[in-house]
Amino acid sequence: MKSRLEKLKGTCVGIAGCGGLGSNCAIALARAGVGHLVIADFDIVAAENLDRQYYFLNQVGEKKVLALRENIRKAAPEIKVDAHELRLGPDEIVRIFKDCQVIVEAFDRADQKLMLIETVSERFPDKFIVAGSGLAGYGRNNALRTRRLGSLFICGDETSEVSEELPPLAPRVGIVAGMQANQVLEIVLDDLRPGSGDDVWDE
C-alpha cells in the first residue's frame, strides 16, 4: 500500500482561479505534499488583494499565476506547478485540467462557478470538483460546512454573498480555502469514488 506522502506526490490537482480561495488552497495543498498543481487565472495582483490573497506587496502588478507559482515553490520546492495565464471557459477547462484527479473551483462569480461545475460534470464525470459557496463577512464559524452531491463537494455557508457591507475577509476566506484543501486530501487519501449513492447531508 502506498504511503500518504507517496499518494499525494502522485496526485494532480487543478485550481480554477487564483484569488482568495485559489491562492490559499494551493498553498495548503502544496504544503501538505500534493505533487502537481495546475493553476489558472487571467488577473494581476492588486494592492487591495493583499488583505486576503496569498500574495505580497512586491508582487503587485505581476500576473497572479506567476506570483502564486513563485510563492508555492518557496513553501514546497519539490512541487510541479503548471501556471496558465488565461480566462477559463469550457474549452480551456477541458484542455488544461484533463490530467487532474480533482478540480478546485475558486472563481469569484457564481455564474462562473456553475459554468465550471456543468463543464466538468458533463465532460469529466469521473473527476471530483470541490467548490466554494458563501464566505463573505466575519464570524459564524459553525455556518461553514461541506455538502456532497455525487462527485461535487461544496464548501461554505451557501448564503453570505460578497457586497460592500459584507466584504470577503481573510479569516473566513482562509477557512473555506482550507476546507477545500482538506476535502481534496480526503478524496485522494481515502480513495473516494464519484457516484451519487453516498451523498452526505449532515445537518
Partner: peptide
C-alpha cells in the same frame, strides 16, 4: 443524481418519488 443545467429547467420535470438536490452558488472567492 443527474445534473440539470439552467437551460433544462423548463424541460426537466419532477414527479412523485423523485430525489432532488439543490444548493445555492454564492458569489465570492
Amino acid at each position: 443524481g443527474h445534473l440539470v443545467s439552467k437551460e433544462e429547467y423548463d424541460r426537466v420535470f419532477v414527479g412523485d418519488g423523485d430525489s432532488v438536490e439543490a444548493i445555492h452558488l454564492i458569489s465570492g472567492g
